[in-house]
């Protein structure tokens, strides 16, 4: 009896999460000031003080609905559509293994065989590249956040690994991540195998949703380790694929890197007003 009540409560909470996720995005003002960023031992993101000008960042990740408007207005061809080399995921793969799928693009984030986005227009757009994200920004007259701006926004005043402290066990309240021990078996224990509707989980103190998890968010910037012979794209916050054991990048410290033309179904973006 108690078990069935718990099950009902769980189902109800998932429905509430789904309902919350129906909202469109707004912008949050981050005031200018000096902020401490980085970590004491992090070699790519050292502890330092930075001055940030006031900026306005989207409360949610950019949705399929918003990206569709861009495509319809411009007939832009994404990298995945052009190169036919998007990387997709299905349960059963070894850690860090992805499949190349020529049918995958923003309309079919994990390939045609795994379904389209018809009923996922309020999910973050994925299977797009950094290059595609910049094209959207140019059209919408917005921009990507810088690496530092993203971190200021994600921390919401905190100096800890996560904006709520250092306890990773609370991640499930705030983020759509992978809770399985590995990626051999499907994990939808938080209600979602892949992406979730934006704003489905609790926000940080600044009112930003999905700052961790759901999709890696592209940022602008360079690091001291950047190679001279090629351009790198950086993205932060981890994704629905990330787990505690395989990729714990759902925090305010780590910085992911990827080819600027790579399209993965766990990559998306959040915009900043010009």
């Amino acid at each position: 009896m108690a078990g069935s009540k718990i099950l009902l409560l769980w189902v109800f909470s998932l429905l509430v999460q789904q309902a919350i996720g129906q909202q469109d995005t707004g912008f949050v003002k981050i005031v200018q000031g000096n902020y401490l960023l980085g970590g004491k031992t992090h070699q790519l993101n050292p502890l330092r003080k930075v001055h940030i000008q006031t900026f306005y960042i989207a409360a949610t990740e950019l949705t399929n609905h918003q990206f569709k408007a861009f495509i319809e207005a411009t007939h832009y061809i994404t990298d995945a559509e052009r190169l036919k080399n998007a990387m997709v995921f299905e349960p059963g793969l070894d850690e860090f293994k992805w499949l190349q799928d020529s049918t995958a693009c923003w309309k079919y984030p994990n390939g045609k065989s795994r379904g389209g986005i018809e009923d996922k227009m309020n999910h973050p757009v994925t299977s797009i590249s950094y290059s595609d994200a910049r094209a959207y920004c140019a059209w919408a007259k917005v921009r990507l956040p810088s690496l530092d701006e993203w971190e200021v926004a994600s921390r919401a005043g905190a100096s800890t690994l996560y904006f709520w402290g250092n306890d990773v066990e609370k991640i499930g309240e705030y983020a759509n991540i992978w809770h399985g021990r590995n990626h051999k078996v499907a994990d939808a224990s938080d209600g979602y195998l892949y992406t979730s509707p934006v704003g489905s989980f609790k926000p940080n103190a600044y009112g930003l949703y999905d700052i961790y998890g759901n999709v890696f968010e592209f940022c602008e910037g360079i690091l001291i380790t950047d190679p001279k012979d090629r351009k790198l794209a950086y993205a932060r916050g981890g994704s629905w694929w990330c787990s505690k054991n395989a990729c714990g990048f759902f925090n305010s410290l780590d910085i992911g890197r990827v080819s600027p033309h790579a399209s993965f179904s766990n990559q998306g973006f959040r915009v900043v007003k010009l």
């Binding site: 031992t41 070699q43 992805w98 994704s239 990048f249 910085i255 990827v258």
Partner: peptide, 14 residues
């Protein structure tokens, strides 16, 4: 021939 995802590249550590 394929891409590695964001968190695949190991950063330098202490």
């Amino acid at each position: 021939e394929s891409y590695s995802q964001n968190c695949d590249v190991v950063p330098p550590i202490i």
